[in-house]
Design a protein around this nucleic acid. Structure first.
Lengths: 220, 220
DNA sequence: TAGATTGTTAATCGATTAACAATC
DNA sequence: TAGATTGTTAATCGATTAACAATC
């Protein structure tokens, strides 16, 4: 019996939700039916406290003396994340990365539906990727009026992103999945942005290596 | 004159370094020579305090009354991140995503050097991606002995990752860039891992949309 | 020197962990 | 009922912000 949902969920909590969702899904696949916060905590290398705190931001999904029913828990987390919403999504930039994202990602699994791919290179027009024909940017207006997409994926260079972003916001895009190096938040503070800065991620790895090597030889 | 470096840098600080590195690089490109923490803070939507605190974990890169010399600052952050280290990197899984990563990423820019690509599908053997011939997994041992790679990029399904990871660790891999859904930390606690869970990122976007819609209509 | 801005210490804020009463 | 485990409040810990003395 879910209780009232806290209105201000911290970003730290939200960031953990997809991982909960994955782990619970995994356990279900393995045939596990119920799990206590302690069980889960051990499997995920977290504390039981944190798991209970996190889940209780959204209501009481567990039962005293029993734990959490995993099927129910997964359903609830899925609802919170909106994985069944199928948000209409368009992708810009059908280069290597754009094509990989378009064809590799299981959009439906994550609450999205890819309905269009645009590329400014006219030689790519009508080429098929992920069962969609690549469209020229000149088709954008018509397409947006008809389909009203909500999410834009940016797989284009920084300069183009800078140029395109305002236009997309004006045309009703509400959220960006940003693979470009353009800092969207700087110009559009009230837009939803998820940055997938792969370069940053790789640098962190490089940092880790650079600084673990020195870990033993810790003089100087 | 950099002062002594703190030994225990928090993960929150480290995560901000790549962004500092990018912004400072950007400013340099624009011809800016110096910048105060206040300037930078405004441009990056942070507080001046935070920037000074962060940088001071690694030593005194600034000068009172002047601010930070950007060229010097970039060089220092680069050194911390290890962007000139060129860590030898191999990639597993030459599917769409693997190919995109291999050909799209500017590895040298981020402290790495891609020296090998492996795929278990023998039909792909010798196919060229990013100027490298795809190798069969049977070549692994020979290749590793000769080249001693340090980073492995996993663009393979969860099940294969689970199987491969132990082997890679045993063969001397020190760090993983993990695109699979396998949770490496669970089995190898002392290994450096950067997870690039694109699905998680997309779910966060879906979360954002799902919950911004309700923001105005905030009853019940 | 006076002005600016850092490096650093202290105060605040938020997130994580621990504890325990409620309850299945 | 007794045992288990949650939901939730309180305590701790860490990270961010503010303040200011040091200094270029």
């Amino acid at each position: 019996m879910p209780k009232s949902r806290k209105t201000d969920i911290s970003i730290s909590v939200i960031k953990r939700l997809p991982r909960y969702y994955r782990f619970v899904g995994e356990l279900i696949k393995q045939g596990v039916v119920r799990s206590s916060s302690g069980d889960l905590a051990e499997k995920m290398s977290l504390t039981a406290s944190q798991i209970r705190q996190d889940l209780n931001c959204f209501g009481g999904f567990g039962q005293q003396g029993y734990g959490y029913n995993l099927i129910e828990l997964r359903k609830e987390i899925g609802k919170i994340l909106g994985v069944d919403c199928g948000y209409k999504t368009v992708l810009f930039g059908a280069g290597n990365l754009g094509k990989a994202i378009a064809s590799h990602m299981n959009f439906e699994k994550y609450g999205c539906e890819l309905i269009g791919i645009f590329d400014s290179d006219l030689r790519k027009t009508n080429e098929r990727v992920a069962n969609l024909k690549i469209m020229p940017v000149s088709d954008m207006e018509r397409f947006f009026e008809e389909k009203k997409p909500e999410i834009a994926i940016l797989c284009i260079p920084k300069a183009s992103a800078q140029e395109l972003a305002d236009k997309l916001v004006a045309m009703g895009i509400k959220a960006f999945w940003n693979f470009s190096h353009y800092d969207l938040k700087v110009s559009h503070k009230d837009i939803i942005v998820e940055n997938a800065h792969l370069g940053d991620s790789l640098m962190m790895l490089s940092y880790g290596l650079t600084n673990s090597n020195n870990e033993e030889a810790e003089e100087e």
